[in-house]
Design a protein around this nucleic acid. Sequence first.
DNA 1: GTCTATATTTGGATAGAC
DNA 2: GTCTATCCAAATATAGAC
Lengths: 202, 202
Amino acid sequence: MPKAAPPRPVGARRRDEILRIAMETFATRGYHNASLAEIAERSGLTQAGVLHHFRTKAGLLTGVLELRDKSDIDALGDGRPRGLGLLRHLVDTARRNAEREGIVRLYTVLSAESVTEGHPAQEYFRSRYQGLRTMVITALEEAAEAGELPATRDLPELANAIIAVMDGLQVQWLLDPAAVDMARATDRVITALIGVPLPPEE
Amino acid sequence: MPKAAPPRPVGARRRDEILRIAMETFATRGYHNASLAEIAERSGLTQAGVLHHFRTKAGLLTGVLELRDKSDIDALGDGRPRGLGLLRHLVDTARRNAEREGIVRLYTVLSAESVTEGHPAQEYFRSRYQGLRTMVITALEEAAEAGELPATRDLPELANAIIAVMDGLQVQWLLDPAAVDMARATDRVITALIGVPLPPEE
DNA sequence: GTCTATATTTGGATAGAC
DNA sequence: GTCTATCCAAATATAGAC
């Protein structure tokens, strides 16, 4: 069973392990408050050892974000859902996220931190939101063309609102998990906004 | 016209000035990445000078958050709106916020940063969200009793969603102001959720 | 590829003079 | 109330041995 891993079959093992731990650490502490020393220690390396694989701390952050992108794309894999199916998929994602606190924490902490001056992830999040917006708008347009969408006015605004609810719920959920049901609330907002129930889960 | 300022008529001048500058700095850099040195310099003091007024950096952050609370309460002043009037007030706040980037930045950055381990503002934001939730739920209950509210199911979920949209929109707006109209999007979500238009602006 | 050692900077906080 | 001086800890990054 040949692996499709492109660059190095075994030399990248350590690198991936460092990335995994860096992800956890950035999620737990934020970027600025996380230290290479902690990441190194938890990786069973020294600080210099980590910096052999990633020349700078910002480079390490970039690596983490690229890794996340890759696994997100892999997760979709078999052709992404279209129209209302994508909105359904967003709700499913919210549900799955309730079992993946680390990921939620990573994105919540870093996205907000990225709006500070000179933050290395600023461009990443700017273009990420642009991508998310485009994706949701496209889905809404597809639904509208298929006649499945009563609300056809100002789709970009609709998309912004849907993305915003999901983000905002995450902050509340991280601070007080018992107080928030991310999936239900997301479903409710989307349903209310588009004026029609979502298709059943795949 | 006698001032109602309680503790010191003139000695607190410097203290307030430091708080103002600290607020800006925390908003721009986040808590961890802001330094007392920078706050001191911008205040025209040395680091030790600042620490004379606030014994620790965390104490300074607490001071900033208390100050904001006080001015928020002052802003409401003449009896807070009830029922749907409060939801209208939320939309108005979103509109005003588009002219107060500093405040938006402060809350967005700090609330997300507060979910990290051992953050000094964690309790503050936990109880702040609890307070916001209670406030919105109460308003929804009032509206329901007055027969102004078609959607009466699961009001806490409704409240969470409304708060979440507002927060989420702020992140997007800070990264790309032209891409988001916070007030319009907030209005649209609230209207869709409660199933009835909001009363006209006061 | 990983380590030790170190350079360099910067952080928060304290002591004591003025 | 503010400063200077200082302490101590921690941070990122580099050089060079193994």
